[in-house]
Design a protein around this nucleic acid. Structure first.
Lengths: 153, 153
DNA sequence: GTCGAATATCTCGATCGTCGAGAGATTACC
DNA sequence: GGTAATCTCTCGACGATCGAGATATTCGAC
């Protein structure tokens, strides 16, 4: 491998890091606009993702998703419920469980912000051939695998 | 554009998001291993980046880098200094300013964790031709531009 | 069916990170 | 020299998170 090639590889790693910073800013911006903190946004995203999969997240599952203890989840859901973003729904099958349902307004706000970004991203990929996108996909999967392994080890 | 192509583009956006999550976990892991919180790690990274550029960050500049008010920066530097990761060095040119210098041990720990990841990432790019990496670079720059614009607007 | 263990959530008190307001020290400008 | 601007720090308050334990519900063994 050439020295130039190695330099290019390092630059790609730096580009990836810069992209990561900008992606974090997406969350931060949504939080600021809607008067939420970072955890609240992560929770809403987790609930929205689950809803898209057809599941209704319980308080406990949400805690696992955002890595919080039960006491913090209670406070978290209290905050989100107070501003009307989620509803607590006791599960009739198992009345210990509390299901979480996003309000219509929160769904709309989330779809507007994150869905809008997703639309812009896919649109920006129009200038790429299928072959090029296949290369990008392979690269993304490879990098993700390396990072995941790094986190586990 | 074909429907399959559009689906592929959406999947790439999801892959990017997944990669973002794993990259965040890198920071979280370093924090956990070294008994720091997220902000502390971001601060150390900012100081290390500045050092690599040959600058010594002041308390104020660090606050801008990690988006904290002066009161929080004081507390932040107190924490880092207490565990021996940074030193306060009064600037002899302008004695209002406080320069921040990373300790040798902190530099080593950071290089080990983040440098090790960077090494693995670049190594994983060995299986790519220069042309393929050029495509990846273009894609990363395009996506970053879209996200940055999204954050500004 | 009943009783104890397991599960799911909540309450309470404590801790820590962040902030606004303002003080203290130093430098820049006129 | 005196005043405004700059940089950092102190103080008191607030909010997010946690551990420990309380409460309610379900499951399993008998």
């Amino acid at each position: 491998m050439s020295d130039e090639g190695d330099l290019e590889r390092r630059e790609l790693a730096l580009l990836l890091r810069r992209l990561n910073v900008e992606l974090d800013a997406v969350t931060a911006r949504f939080a600021e606009v809607h008067g939420l903190n970072r955890t609240d946004v992560r929770a809403l995203v987790a609930i929205m993702d689950a809803a898209r999969r057809g599941e209704a997240l319980t308080a406990g599952r949400l805690g696992e998703a955002v890595d919080l203890r039960s006491a913090s989840v209670t406070a978290l859901v209290d905050r989100l419920e107070k501003v009307g973003h989620v509803r607590r729904v006791r599960d009739p099958e198992d009345r210990r469980r509390v299901g979480l349902e996003m309000s219509e307004s929160a769904m709309v706000a989330g779809a507007e912000h994150f869905g809008g970004l997703a639309r812009d991203l896919t649109a920006a990929m129009d200038g790429y051939t299928d072959e090029e996108l296949a290369v990008v996909r392979r690269w993304l999967e490879d990098m993700t695998a390396v990072i995941t392994r790094h986190n586990r080890a």
